[in-house]
Design a binder for these strands. Structure first.
Lengths: 141, 141
DNA sequence: TATAATTCCTAGCGGTTAACTAGGCATCAT
DNA sequence: ATGATGCCTAGTTAACCGCTAGGAATTATA
């Protein structure tokens, strides 16, 4: 029941970009250094975020990455979904049709409501926290 | 962010035992057959549940397993913790000292509060649902 | 125009875990 | 004494995680 580093690194990287929102593009190396992430690995992760429209890239010298939307329009859930897949403790309660898989057990599976409640509570938390919230918090503490 | 089959199978097996609570011991094979779980694999899982004091075993013919406590005293969280480990999306917010691991990043890690909120909401859901709740629900639906 | 800083892409790799299977031993009602 | 059951450990296959490697494309700047 653990997140992989993908999700964590992704959130950290996006937080880093949020800190520099409005500035010139942030090179990947700088993010990797500040957040303590292997640059090569982060490159793969940020590629997903780019293709998902969460960050934008600028190539060439002085290039780097910027958030594609403002920090208050990007939730932690958005990032997690890109890097970890649908937020669902088991496939049979996935809200993404591509990920959903019927467990094939007796109809009226008794345990499914448990996983649905768990999923809902996870989604509620992750979709309620924006990068802006993290910025504000970082400033206060 | 998925549960493994361990947790799911464990809850299903315990639900099966709850259905027969008060009766004579339920042989592992019967549980495995009804729940569609590989008997050999379930044997390993139920071994953990036994050592954790959630189920009791009776050896010999007519033997099998029974719940060690009544269904309203066993939560889904109890079962998950035995089979999946501490309920924590990342190790640095694990409430189990053995599992906890400091991420070693800059102090005042900005993302930790996110994982703490997520953990709390997961724990709240899983610890609030007992096997009795599943029984009642199975009866109604 | 040449250089170098950057992003982009894909392949591979070593380690770990998941989900079993296999096989043998211990217990004990009948 | 038998056979049904639980108990234990060691394998096995496949997938995935967290990287590393190496090169191609882009482009600001000297």
């Amino acid at each position: 029941m653990k997140l992989s580093t993908k999700g964590r690194y992704g959130v950290m990287a996006c937080y880093d970009l949020a800190c520099h929102h409005g500035d010139s593009p942030v090179p990947l190396k700088a993010i990797a250094r500040r957040q303590g992430i292997s640059p090569g690995y982060l490159e793969q992760l940020i590629g997903h975020l780019r293709r998902a429209g969460i960050v934008r890239s600028v190539r060439g010298p002085q290039g780097g990455y910027v958030l594609a939307r403002s920090p208050d329009e990007i939730t932690v859930g958005d990032i997690i979904r890109v890097l970890e897949g649908p937020i669902a403790p088991v496939e049979c309660v996935s809200q993404d049709p591509g990920d959903f898989r019927h467990c094939g057990r007796t109809e009226g599976c008794v345990t499914r409501p448990v996983w649905e409640k768990l999923r809902d509570s996870m989604v509620r938390v992750l979709d309620s926290i924006t990068l802006k919230d993290l910025l504000d918090e970082g400033g206060r503490e």
